[in-house]
């Protein structure tokens, strides 16, 4: 019996560059797993492989009991169940906040306008941006845009959320509003999440398990207390030492 989401020997290359090297990872339902590691260690690529935005070269991925990597899976149907939020928000600039949030429910799930908008307003209310529903994204701060991007993903009622360094592009004073929202997702909904992040204290707080990636390999994996307080691998110690020195923990 495989886990809710399970990666077996997942390998991804860009040309000669091996970005992911035989990754094994299992995440159970309602678990939060944080991926940490330097830029370029493969965190983002790993997330993109999970919802098939990147094609896996070798290895297998199972989601909710079904294999995703055998070429038979309906990728559009799969992606309905896996939400992803990007570092650069990637809101649709030609649509209002409300249209951003309702596009996929209307076009993919076939919800009527009323139903989709009611649900979207409910989500916007939850993220405290109900009054911005008719605004265009470029009128919002980075933190607000990122919260809308989270609401847009949530509008599809995903079973799994992938967060790809969602606070890396934000001004420091805007980071907490986004992290608070993510925190509430774990606490109130028990949302299953895989989070690539540079926010170590946040990872320590919300993660059930932390994976340290280095050069496309999960070098060390364990509960956050162990990883952050007593890292075993020399590379993990070195990485966390640098993070500490930079005042990011």
């Amino acid at each position: 019996m495989s886990a809710f989401i399970q990666l077996e020997g997942v390998t991804k290359r860009f040309g000669d560059n091996v970005v992911l090297d035989r990754i094994d990872l299992a995440v159970e339902e309602h678990q939060v797993v944080c991926l940490i590691g330097a830029s370029g260690s493969g965190k983002s690529t790993l997330l993109r492989c999970v919802n098939l935005l990147e094609r896996v070269d070798e290895g297998r991925i199972f989601f909710d009991g079904k294999e995703l990597t055998n070429g038979k899976v309906d990728v559009n149907a799969l992606r309905r169940n896996i939400g992803i939020v990007f570092q650069a928000y990637n809101l649709f600039p030609h649509m209002t906040v409300l249209q951003n949030v309702t596009l996929a429910p209307r076009k993919v799930l076939g919800h009527g306008r009323r139903k989709a908008e009611d649900r979207a307003r409910e989500l916007l209310h939850r993220i405290g941006l109900e009054e911005k529903a008719e605004e265009y994204p470029d009128r919002l701060s980075g933190g607000q845009q990122q919260r809308v991007a989270i609401a847009r993903a949530l509008a599809m009622d995903p079973k799994l959320m992938l967060l790809d360094e969602i606070t890396s592009a934000l001004d420091p004073q805007l980071v907490s509003e986004v992290l608070n929202l993510v925190r509430s997702l774990t606490e109130e909904f028990g949302m299953t999440m895989i989070i690539a992040t540079h926010e170590m204290s946040f990872a320590r707080e919300v993660a059930d398990r932390v994976c340290f990636l280095d050069a496309g390999v999960i070098l060390e994996e364990g509960p956050p207390e162990q990883i952050f307080s007593a890292p075993r691998a020399a590379r993990t110690q070195e990485f966390l030492g640098r993070v500490l020195a930079a005042g990011r923990m």
């Binding site: 919802n51 896996i82 809101l91």
Partner: peptide, 9 residues
Amino acid sequence: MAARSLGLS
């Protein structure tokens, strides 16, 4: 990519 990730064809 953002559009496809939401399940749009």
